[in-house]
Design a protein around this nucleic acid. Structure first.
Lengths: 120, 120
DNA sequence: ACAAGTACTTACCCCAAAGTATGTATGACA
DNA sequence: TGTCATACATACTTTGGGGTAAGTACTTGT
């Protein structure tokens, strides 16, 4: 999981900001190129790995797995694997993950307004 | 402003995601280590450069200026300079910038809940 | 003469996130 | 026997955000 150099200003500032700033806390959970999209696709219900993959043509498998693991570690989703071959793995949002819907909605509202795409 | 290599997957994906994902759009405007903090300080009213600087002891001047310029370019705040010496420059949120308050609130609500710090 | 305050600017470096490419285990099916 | 499908893993490279350090312009105070 990529060891962290403790004695760097970058990480010092990062920690300060994470502890002090709820916005940055949220960013650390759902930020990056792909995590919001993954969450979006799961908001409509559980999906298996291959379904998420098909829904996101541009993401590489490495990035997809990496972010799914991260989201699982952050307790935003749950991974369930059936012991069959070929593998059957589903991903489901936790309550915490579902709670992000209001956040995402607020962001979407502002975004569409800001992009001048709102018509009411 | 740091020339961009057009033919890279990194930027291709970035653009795709920016156009498709309102969450990423918002992130691009208020993401990073410092922008949310700057916005937070300006939500309570206009401030001059030196006031913001004092309110954020850990930020470097380069980062502060850089983000203020970016926020200005994104029309989230307005810079006003009085032609005096020593310089007197104030930064004020635009309506668009003020509109972020609801977004920030939604994020803060979720963050505090998720951090288990909520007591109601 | 020179230090101090304000609001910047610029050149350079580091590192973590993102991307590339390839490999793995297992069983079904042809 | 070997190819296909699923759900990963891993070594390596690239990219851009962030940090360091130093300098600039202009004027007021000592």
């Amino acid at each position: 999981m990529t060891a962290i150099k403790e004695n760097s200003t970058y990480n010092a500032n990062r920690e300060i900001v994470l502890n002090e700033c709820p916005v940055t806390y949220v960013m650390s959970k759902i930020g990056g190129h792909w995590k919001p999209i993954i969450l979006y696709h799961l908001l409509s219900g559980s999906k298996r790995y291959s379904e998420i993959k098909k829904a996101m043509p541009h993401i590489t498998e490495k990035m997809l797995i990496q972010h799914l693991k991260q989201l699982e570690a952050d307790k935003l989703l749950i991974r369930e694997a059936k012991p069959v071959v070929p593998p059957y793995v589903t991903y489901t949002l936790t309550e915490s993950g579902k709670g992000l819907q209001t956040v995402i909605s607020a962001m979407a509202d502002w975004a569409f307004k800001d992009m001048g795409k709102v018509r009411i």
